[in-house]
């Protein structure tokens, strides 16, 4: 299968690879997928608690090149958005931007799921009275 130039670019130069401390209350972590399905994405957001703006994002992905590219692109899209704006990100934007073929659409769906999971983790931590009790 031939990959689009954008997928190759993200695969060869993935943006924002790494991890934040998931215990930090300002960090939201999403972990989606399963090893036996062949893809797992970990996506983390660092949120400014005063403004609700996502100041930074990081990812790590086990998966095919399109999965790596989808999550790399997702971290770029997240930066500078408020968490409410981030919830509006649709997988189709990732499909279009990376020119993913039909068999790779699930990679973009997984990236959207990872964004939503990271935001809900952040909300759960900060909505709860005792953030320290949030899941590790």
């Amino acid at each position: 299968m031939a990959y689009s130039d954008k997928v190759l670019d993200h695969y060869n130069n993935p943006r924002n690879v790494g991890s934040f401390d998931k215990k930090d209350p300002g960090i939201g972590t999403g972990l989606v997928g399963a090893p036996e399905c062949g893809d797992v994405m970990k996506l983390q957001i660092k949120v400014n608690s005063d403004t609700g703006v996502i100041e930074d994002a990081k990812f790590k992905t086990f998966g095919c090149g399109s999965a790596i590219a989808s999550s790399s692109l997702a971290t770029e899209m997240l930066k500078g958005k408020t968490i409410d704006q981030a919830l509006d990100i649709k997988n189709t934007e990732i499909v279009n931007e990376l020119a993913l073929p039909p068999v790779k659409i699930h990679c973009s769906v997984l990236a959207e799921d990872a964004i939503k999971a990271a935001i809900s983790d952040y909300k759960a931590k900060n909505g709860a009275p005792a953030p320290a009790a949030a899941k590790a």
């Binding site: 090893p35 994405m41 970990k42 790590k60 992905t61 086990f62 790596i68």
Partner: peptide, 16 residues
């Protein structure tokens, strides 16, 4: 593996 959340988890001692 630098990019792999699974490798990171295993190195942290998590049983996948």
């Amino acid at each position: 593996r630098e990019l792999s959340p699974l490798y990171e988890m295993v190195k942290e001692g998590i049983d996948l």
